[in-house]
Each structure stands twice: as C-alpha cells, then as structure tokens.
Design a protein around this nucleic acid. Structure first.
Lengths: 341, 341
DNA sequence: CTGAAAGCGCTTACAG
DNA sequence: CTGAAAGCGCTTACAG
C-alpha cells in the first residue's frame, strides 16, 4: 500500500473559507480565537481524521519530541524493564522513543549517537557500551544536545546519571551472608573494572571490613565477559580449593546461576555448605533450583527517572552542564540459595 | 545542555561562495557536479562535521526513514530477539525504528498506530495485541501507510504477515513424543483461540490423527493468560486424573516450566513417567532441571524478514494490497525433559 | 478576533 | 556544470 498524504491545514482552511493561520491557532487552542471558530475547525478536523504532521511543526520549532535511547543489549531482561520505564514516562510526557543497540561495540555506539543527531532527537538516553575507551565522541554529542546516562555510566562524562546504589546493594548482599553465619565469602566479578563491577566489589570489601573479616585473594575471582559458563568455571575453581568458601557472591545472576549448576552437579548442599547470592533478580533466578537470592534492581524506576531528568533538561535548557548522580534504591530478595526457613 | 542547531547547507554554501543547490547536489553525489566542486564541498562538510537535517529532507520528500514497531510486551525474550532482527535489518536498509508497547491493550494499540502516523513513519510493523476484537482501526491505518504484521497476526487483515510454521512445529513436537513411545499426550493451550494457540492445537490434532492415537478430552486443557503458574495448576489437574498422561505438550515455555516445577514437586520421573515439551526456546528452558525440550523460534529471522518485506513495500509501492503469509521454519530442540540418552 | 507573509533546511524541475 | 526559485506543512511575529 502506498503512503498516502494526510489532510493538511491548508485543505481544512479552504473548506472553511478561513486562513491557515486561524485553523492552526484553533487547533492549538490559541486564546485569540473565538470559541465559535474553534468548534467549527475542530469538528471538521475530526470529520476528516486530521493528523498534524509533527515533522512540519517539529521542523519549524526545532523540536521533534523524539528521544533516542542507546543500550548495549536489548535482550537483557533488566534492560527491557528499563526500556518499559522509558517508554511509559516518555509517553506520559509526550515523547516518542527511538531505540538502538550498540552491541557493546564502541564504534557502533558512536555511529548511533551520530545518527540520532541526524534524526534530530531532542535528547539522548545512553547506557554505555562495555569497554568504552574514549568518551570524546560522546562528549561532543552532549555539547549539542541534552543527554542523560543510566545504568552503565562513566564518571568521565559530565551529565546527569541515573544508577542504582551498586555499592550499598552489594554491601547488603554480603552482609546478609555474614548474618546467616558465613565467614568465607567468595566473590566473582569482572576483570576490568566496569563501573558496576567496581562498585559492587567496593561494597563487598566494605562489608567484610566492617565485620572484621580478613580478605583472601584466593576467593576473589575475576573474569572477562561474565556469564553463566564463566560462573560454572569459577565455581569449579572454588570447589577445588583446599579451603572452600562457605558462600559465593556473584555480581550477576547469570554467573550465580552457573555457580548453582556447578554446585548441584557436585551435590554440594546449598545453602548449608555453600550459599549463593546473585545480582539483578532476573527471571531465571526463580527458575533455578534452589531459587536464587539476588538484588532486585527497579528497572522501571530507573527508566522513568532518566526520562524525567532528560525532558526537564530539554524543556528548561540551562547553559551549563549538569553533573548529578541519582541513585535508585535496590532491594535484596532472599530465596533458598542463601537461607532456608 | 541546550540543543544546538547543526551547521546548514546555507552556511556551507556561503563559506564556499557557491549556491545551496550546488552544495546539496555535491553532497548527494549528483552526476552533474564536477569532481572538483564535490571534493571541496565534502572537505568543508567534514571539517564542520556537517550533519544533514533528515527531517528537512524527509519533510521535503515525504519520507522519514523511520519504521514504527508495535509489540504487546517488550520484555518477552522471544520478542527481544525479533526486535534485534528488526533493528539490524532496519539499520542495514537505512531506517531507524520507533518501538512501542501495546501492553495487550487494544485501545492503546490504536492510539499508538495513530501516533506513529503523526510521526510520519514510513511503515508499520505490528504484532497484534492479545484479544484484539476489532481490526477496523488497523485497516484504516493500513490504507494510508505500508504495514507488515509478524508473530501475532490475523487473517482478517489483508497485508503481508511473517509467522513461524506454528502448526508444523507443534506437529513435530508431538510426533517426537510419539516417537519416544508416548501415547497419552496432554496439551495445555489457550482458551480463546489466538492465532498461535489455534495453529499449535491444530498441529497436535494432526499428529495424533496421523499416528492413529485417539483424542481424550480429559487431557486437553485450556487456560486464559497462559503462564508459569497456570502451567502448574494444569499439571496438578493432570496428576489428579485416574489415567495420567505420559507426556505433556504446553504451547508456551513458561507453562511448560510450571508443569516441570509441579512434576518435580511430586517427584514424578521426567521424562520416563511423564515427558514435557514447551514452545519458544526461552532462556529459562536451559535453566530449569531437567532442561526443557522446546521449539526454537528464529526471532531474528522473523524480524529481518518482516523489515525486508516492509521496506520493499515502502520503496516499491503498489496500488494493491498485498496479502501474503511467510512462514519461517522452526527447529525442535530435544533436551532432558523428553529424552534422556 | 483574523489574515498575509516569512521562514524552518532541504530537494529538484527549470533555466542558462 | 551551476544557480535562482518554488515548495514540503506548519508556526508565529506583525499588522489590522
């Protein structure tokens, strides 16, 4: 089917024998226009199913009412909950959303940023691709257009950033293990300190320190591209130690699930011999047996918050850069992998 | 940060002391322009980091190079794989993608369709919301703009539809159970025949028929809003029968996982006593124990295919409606829930 | 309360 | 090979 042009202001004006200006004002409820005219115009617009061409008006006013979102991977459940929040709040505030996937590819990310600008988005929401080395390109974009970062952020970029309280969340998770009597708590983290991994590790360190538990490098494991299979591998390493840990904190659910699978295979009693805690509250955390204790991240709220700040910057522009970090609270969900009633 | 206007053709033209027309043509590699001029223009454009305003050109040419996508729920893993395919192929063909969620709400779906038109998308990709009663609104949109449906489709809408071979996939799944010696095969389906549920049920019926297995209404269960907890409930019903089934085919993975959880609870031997087969190859199907035999749906391919057909309709418009159904092949993934080596 | 006119940034038929 | 001009559909300062 061919694209058919919608009816225009001009056509409406002609049919009513009034000017285009008046029609435009009537539809926008301009106070100058008489009630009578407004009613007539609106009735006709309805009759013809008039749909304003937002690009014509956006083009005129330099506003498209489109927000651009770039995320590393659209398939991660946590990401989809953020996207839901973004879509909802965007809709509330009258914005549409263009979504792109950077696939953790820095070059792609830059290209997308560029294309977003081409499409004249009014603002950009960005979750950084893994291993983003250079933030120059991003800062260039930011100098032209409002931007808010979320989840995967970087201290090197001066803009509003919406994150969860990573460090505190990890702290609570580890403290929970300590409270159930665990003392030899292993951690599985990412080798190259991404913002998230680093913060969670910080929380781990602080929790141990506050409870006077000595560090043991042997049970601090790092891996690249943390995943279920890596979790499995790490668990095997931990099981082969002379002094096994009595708990394992994996900084992602997928790694934690790999750990549980490995422990199940070797018939390790979870949580009595070894407890397991993950991070994300992914769907799988309720599917695995035993169910996984994990940190619930309120993705929806993160998305909504990010949109609110972005739209505020769009609609109330300041000359200065705003550097502000908003921390959204998480919640530890205790399940069978760490505590059995 | 304020939105800053990009440099325009006019500015480039002024700096080079040539006309806007020439600059435009040079950048678009128009054959009329001399190599010399082209080089000069492009160099300057690069230097100023010129980004064409796609809305100005799109507005001019009545093309925005934006595709609109509407899906019931962005969080379903299968949906995200389709979206990935859509984003990838869209990008390949030079289109951006606006995504909306209908949340299975028919009214919302109509609104979104309208807003998409307002934003001047060049075409729409639609997965129907559950229980869409009236297709009038959709057909209205379709008369103005190219549209392709995918996954959740309806025979009542005359447009290109990209689906999986639902009926055949279900047929193979059930046949697999028969081949492993099962004879009393239960099915858990949706009560109100959505397109997908109906087709899968048809496959089930045909497989039983082809292998001369009599139908038994007692083990044909229907439920509304099929889900994990519904799967559990249905399994409990099946377990309470005097003549238990020896296999259960659930038309979604989530229901199948509910079934496995229920069977595990009652220590039923899977697959020897009762085998289980699902549909979707969701991530959870490898997390659950025993791992779930299921139908892999190539979401990426569905997404790419839908985009290809849509863009073809956009770029080579026909006056007539095209009604064509493309069936993408699925693949049965045999795991421990139906067959142990 | 209403209208005529300029202009947003681009493309393109027409003219030379 | 290049330019002047019209026009895409809308908004809005200006004039009345």
């Amino acid at each position: 089917m061919k694209k058919r042009p919608s009816i225009t202001l001009k056509a409406l004006a002609k049919e009513l024998n009034i000017s285009i200006s008046t029609v435009s004002r009537a539809l926008n409820d301009h106070p100058d226009i008489s009630r009578d005219t407004k009613e007539k115009v609106k009735a006709l617009a309805d009759k013809h199913n008039y749909i304003p061409n937002l690009f014509a008006s956006g083009f005129r006013t330099n506003r498209t009412h489109i927000l651009g979102v770039i995320v590393p991977n659209i398939s991660h459940y946590f990401t989809t909950t953020i996207l839901k929040g973004i879509l909802e709040e965007g809709e509330n505030l009258g914005y549409r959303v263009i979504i792109s996937e950077s696939k953790n590819d820095e070059k792609k990310q830059s290209e997308m940023l560029r294309t977003m600008m081409q499409f004249g988005v009014d603002g950009v929401l960005l979750a950084l691709s893994r291993k983003t080395k250079s933030v120059d390109e991003i800062i260039k974009v930011m100098n032209r257009i409002p931007m808010v970062m979320f989840d995967k952020v970087s201290g090197k970029i001066p803009c509003t950033q919406v994150v969860i309280n990573e460090e505190e969340a990890a702290y609570h998770a580890v403290e929970h293990l300590i409270n159930t009597g665990k003392r030899r708590i292993a951690i599985i983290k990412e080798v190259e300190g991404s913002y998230n991994s680093q913060k969670r590790y910080d929380g781990y360190l602080r929790a141990l320190h506050d409870h006077s538990i000595p560090l043991d490098e042997k049970i601090i494991l790092s891996t690249e591209d943390i995943s279920m299979s890596k979790g499995r591998m790490m668990a095997n390493i931990l099981l082969s130690l002379k002094k096994r840990p009595d708990a394992i904190f994996a900084i992602t659910d997928s790694a934690a699930i790999g750990v549980i699978k490995a422990l199940n295979k070797f018939k390790v009693d979870i949580p009595n011999e070894i407890a397991v805690v993950g991070f994300s509250n992914s769907i799988s955390s309720t599917i695995i047996n035993p169910s996984l204790t994990t940190v619930d991240q309120p993705g929806n709220k993160i998305g909504r918050t990010a949109v609110k700040y972005l739209v505020d910057e769009i609609e109330n522009p300041k000359e200065d850069l705003i550097t502000k970090t908003i921390e959204v609270k998480t919640n530890l969900i205790v399940r069978d992998s760490s505590f059995k009633a």
